[in-house]
C-alpha cells in the first residue's frame, strides 16, 4: 500500500476527525463513569456535549499576578501538539504531511507537551498547579526515554522514519507481533503525555486537580480537550506504527485505521477505570531499570532480525 500526500486543504478535515474521535473517547469515559456510579449510560454518553455547554457558559478566571502569556501557551499547547502529531499519521492511503522524518516529528511533538503541561502549572501562580506541573516533569523524565526507544523499533524494521514506509513494511506482519515490548511501552507513554489514568498524577486529586486547579471556562475546556486529543493522536500513531495502519482485509484502508485507533483508544480509556494513579517518584526506578533495558533489548532483537533478513 502506498501512501499519497493530499493538499494542505485537507488539514481542517484531519483536525475535525481528531476532535470527533476525541469526543467519542470522552463519551466512552462518561458512559463508563456513569456505569460505575449506577446511572443510566445515555446521560454519560452526552458528557462531552454537556461539559462543553457548561464550560462555555462559565466565566474565565485569572489569578493575581499570573504569568498570563505562559499560561495561555500551556493551555493551548496540549491541543496544538495533538493536532501537529496527527498531521503526520497516514489516514489509510492519504496523509496531509508525508514527512520523511514522521517518527521524529511525533517524538518532537510529544516533548512539546512537557513544556505545555509545565507552563499550564506554572502560569497561574498557585501552589497546587505548580506542584502538579513539576510532578509532570518528574513523570516525563521516566516515560520519555523508553518511549523514544520504543519509537525507533518500527523505524529500524522499516528502515525509514517515514510513517508511510512504516505502514508498508507491515503488509505481511504487524509490528506488534514481534515488538510487543515496544508497543506496551508506547501505550504507557501515551497515557503519560496525555496525563491520563495511571499516569494522571500531575492532574490528580492529591494536588486538588494539579495543573487544572485554577482553570475555568474555556481554559479548562482547552485543557480537557487537549488531553483527549493527545490520547487520540497517540492511539492513531500506535495503530499506524504497531497495528499495521491501514492494512486489513475487506474494509478500505481508512476504515481499518479508524477501527484500530478506536480499539486502542477504548483500551486506554478503560485503563483509567481499572487502575489507580502511580506516584511519579515510584515510576522512576521501574522505568529506568526495567522498561528501558527491556525496550533496548527489543530494539536489539529488531535490528538483528533486520540485518539477518538483509
Amino acid at each position: 500500500m502506498t501512501v499519497t500526500e493530499v493538499s494542505a486543504g485537507w488539514v481542517p478535515v484531519a483536525a475535525a476527525l481528531l476532535l470527533v474521535v476525541a469526543a467519542a473517547a470522552a463519551s466512552l469515559d462518561g458512559a463508563l463513569a456513569a456505569r460505575s456510579a449506577g446511572q443510566p449510560l445515555g446521560g454519560g454518553l452526552l458528557t462531552p456535549v454537556a461539559e462543553t455547554a457548561r464550560l462555555f457558559g462559565q466565566r474565565r478566571r485569572t489569578t493575581v499576578a499570573a504569568d498570563l502569556p505562559l499560561q495561555r501557551i500551556g493551555t493551548a499547547g496540549l491541543l496544538t501538539a495533538a493536532l501537529l502529531m496527527v498531521a503526520v499519521v497516514p489516514f489509510g492511503r492519504w496523509t496531509v504531511a508525508d514527512l520523511t522524518v514522521g517518527v521524529v516529528w511525533f517524538n518532537a511533538m510529544d516533548v512539546l507537551v512537557w513544556a505545555a503541561v509545565w507552563l499550564a502549572g506554572w502560569g497561574p501562580n498557585s501552589a497546587h498547579p505548580l506542584v502538579g506541573g513539576y510532578r509532570f516533569l518528574a513523570q516525563a523524565l521516566s516515560y520519555e526515554l523508553p518511549l523514544m526507544f520504543a519509537l525507533t523499533a518500527p523505524a529500524v524494521a522499516a528502515g525509514s522514519l517515514r510513517l508511510g514506509d512504516v505502514v508498508a513494511a507491515q503488509s505481511g506482519l504487524w509490528f506488534v507481533v514481534w515488538m510487543p515490548v515496544a508497543f506496551a511501552v508506547f501505550c504507557v507513554a501515551v497515557a503519560g503525555f496525555s496525563v491520563w489514568g495511571p499516569l494522571g498524577a500531575p492532574a490528580g486529586a492529591t494536588t486538588a486537580g494539579g495543573v487544572f486547579v485554577e482553570a475555568a471556562g474555556v481554559d479548562r475546556w482547552l485543557l480537557s480537550v487537549g488531553r483527549y486529543a493527545l490520547l487520540t493522536a497517540g492511539a492513531a500513531f500506535g495503530a499506524t506504527a504497531f497495528l499495521g495502519g491501514g492494512h486489513g482485509p475487506l474494509l478500505p484502508a481508512w476504515l481499518w485505521l479508524l477501527v484500530k485507533t478506536a480499539a486502542l483508544l477504548a483500551v486506554l480509556v478503560a485503563l483509567r477505570r481499572r487502575l489507580p494513579v502511580v506516584r511519579p517518584e515510584q515510576l522512576a526506578a521501574p522505568a529506568w531499570l526495567v522498561a528501558l533495558p527491556l525496550v533496548l533489548l527489543q530494539v536489539l532483537v529488531v535490528s538483528v532480525v533486520v540485518v539477518v533478513q538483509a
Partner: peptide
C-alpha cells in the same frame, strides 16, 4: 482514600 489514589471507579463504587 481511593479518590485520592486516583482510582475514581472504585472510589465511586465504595461511596455507593
Amino acid at each position: 482514600l481511593l479518590a485520592l489514589a486516583g482510582w475514581d471507579d472504585s472510589a465511586v463504587r465504595a461511596a455507593r
